[in-house]
Amino acid sequence: MKKIISLLLVMSLTFSSTSVPFLQPSLASAEETTINTEDNNINQPSTPLEKEITTTEENEIQPMILPVWAAWTLAAIAGAVISEIVSDIYSEVKDYVYNSKSQQAANTNLTGSIYDINMYQDKFNATLTANHVGDGKTNNSVRVITLQKGLNARGYNTTVDGIWGPNTKSSVKNFQASKGLTSDGIVGKDTWYYLQNK
């Protein structure tokens, strides 16, 4: 907003310096009034109308125009301000579009780095079947502990013992149902994703 106000101020100064002259009372009219009236009785107005016209002419305001270099300086400042405003707008639009596309990709395509899980100092990629937990899976005890801690953090009462059992499986099914996932008790990539991101 400050930049726009600055731009308007510079533009108004530029416009006034080139198109609308600044007004300054004429110094010549003040000198003319000091003429000795005794020497110039012929030029003295005799009627009230003539006196009014003479007074108006004496107080006439003379235009004063800024030098050309000042107008060019103001124009250069206006150009710099406009350039900065356009640059800022471009950056904001670019950031908005980039962030919108990134958010849209994250919401619609559950692929790539969003399956890189980092919970409770346990880092792994959930797309690898070796990191899945459930009946018939490897059930790595470190992954089971991470799963049990994550379920507890989301309100599912589970014993953290690193053992895949019926209590943990029941908690997983309830969690999957609450997130709209297939409630099969298998902790695959999507279950890990929702478990990490609530």
Rank of each mutant, 00 (worst) to 15 (best):
Y120N: 10
Q24N: 11
E58I: 05
D135S: 09
R143G: 03
N59V: 02
K179V: 05
F15E: 06
D116Y: 00
K2E: 14
L13W: 08
L128A: 13
I145G: 00
S19W: 15
A130Q: 10
N109W: 10
E84I: 11
T138P: 04
V93R: 03
D122G: 00
E58Y: 12
S46A: 13
A105M: 13
F15C: 08
I85W: 10
T127V: 08
I5H: 00
S83N: 09
Q104F: 14
Q44P: 04
S46K: 09
T47G: 11
V86N: 00
Y120I: 00
N118L: 05
T159N: 05
L151R: 04
K137M: 11
T129V: 13
S29H: 07
S91K: 10
K179N: 09
A106K: 03
L74K: 00
L49S: 14
P63E: 10
F124A: 06
T18S: 10
Y96N: 09
V144T: 03
V81R: 07
P48H: 02
V20L: 06
L128H: 09
K169S: 12
G155N: 05
T33R: 12
N174S: 15
A105S: 14
L8I: 11
K149V: 01
W164N: 01
N99Q: 13
I65T: 14
Y98A: 14
N140Q: 08
A126R: 02
E57Q: 09
H132K: 01
Q62K: 15
T159F: 05
E92A: 09
W69G: 08
G162A: 00
D184R: 05
A177F: 11
G162N: 05
T158C: 02
F175P: 04
K179A: 00
W192L: 03
L7N: 05
V20A: 04
W164I: 14
S87C: 06
Y98M: 13
